[in-house]
Amino acid sequence: MSGKPRATSHLLAGASSGFASAIVLQPFDLMKTRLQQVDGRSTGMGFGRLLGIARGITDAHGWRGLWRGTNATLLRNVPGVAVYFYALQTIRTQMTKMPHFAAAPSVLQVSGTTVLPKLSREGDLIAGAVARVSLGVLLNPFTVIKARFESDLYNYKTMREAFTGIVRQQGIRGLLSGWTPSAMRDAPYAGIFLLFYEQIKDKFERVMITAHREPSPGLIHSVSAATAAGVASCITHPFDVVKTKMQIRPERYTSMTKTIFIVLKEKTFFNGLGLRMSRKVLSSAITWTVYEGTLLLLRERRR
């Protein structure tokens, strides 16, 4: 039987990886949002500052408070990551048929550590960006609700209350708050991530083969994803700050241009960078290791 993964395999693997990363890493998102909601220049994100934020949350809500917003994150990540991976691999598969985007002969075509299609560098960059932005507008309402749950500026008790509250105050447009900076963050992030991930993964496997060592899929996927996420996070973080401010303070940050000017004046473009990078590095390592590992497992079962 063919080892080519089916559509259901991508959806299952994507949903599993989205669930795992959301549950484990929600506290990072929560504290990042709290850092970014503050007006004026940040005093830094040293351990003492983060400990103070965590202590304030636990004093008010107990340890469970660090997972505030998890339901919104799950509703966004589980189906979102599943559909993203399915869309990404559909796009990549179609692009392999285009000579300009097909992987060069020097790329490792047959691999024991992945079942994903191979593209050129330009192909990976474009495929990642297109897949992520196409899905972004559909997920934006959950992103807005997630950001507001994580902020301490709102006292929503349920997802329904948050949804109706946003629509009542801002109309349907409120559910699309921050979509433009989100797209300007996600398109380069996804493209840069996929480009670095595939390049590092291929070179890592070659090094292990040259050293006469059995390539370890888990190690290759986690190291490649973590490194790629660190690079992409640094490059795209300013738009993450703009996006968060527009979603949780729409009365002050009424447009992307105005928000950028305010953030430039207050020098807060890199608020929460350390937390976001830590979260993205860990999330990507978990997500892509679970995703690719699940695909490999399903391939072996089908065989």
Rank of each mutant, 00 (worst) to 15 (best):
M1L: 00
K4D: 13
T8D: 02
S17G: 01
F19A: 15
F19G: 10
A20Q: 02
S21P: 00
A22W: 03
F28N: 03
M31W: 06
K32R: 15
K32M: 15
G46D: 12
R49G: 08
G52K: 14
A60M: 03
H61R: 15
A72W: 02
L74Q: 09
R76L: 09
V83W: 08
F85G: 02
L88I: 05
Q89P: 02
Q94C: 03
F101I: 00
S106D: 12
V110W: 05
S111N: 10
L116C: 01
P117I: 04
K118A: 12
L119K: 12
R121H: 14
G123E: 11
G123S: 11
I126F: 12
V130C: 08
I145Y: 05
K146M: 13
R148K: 13
E150W: 03
Y156K: 09
R160C: 00
A162R: 06
Q169L: 06
Q169D: 11
I172E: 07
I172N: 09
G174D: 01
G178E: 10
M184T: 05
D186R: 02
D186C: 04
A190E: 10
I192G: 00
F193P: 01
L194M: 09
Q199C: 10
E205Y: 03
I209T: 10
P217K: 14
I220P: 07
A225S: 10
S233W: 06
Q247R: 07
Q247S: 08
L273I: 13
L275H: 00
V281N: 05
S283T: 14
S284C: 12
I286N: 04
W288V: 03
L295P: 01
L296R: 14
L297S: 13
L298G: 00
R301E: 10
R302L: 03
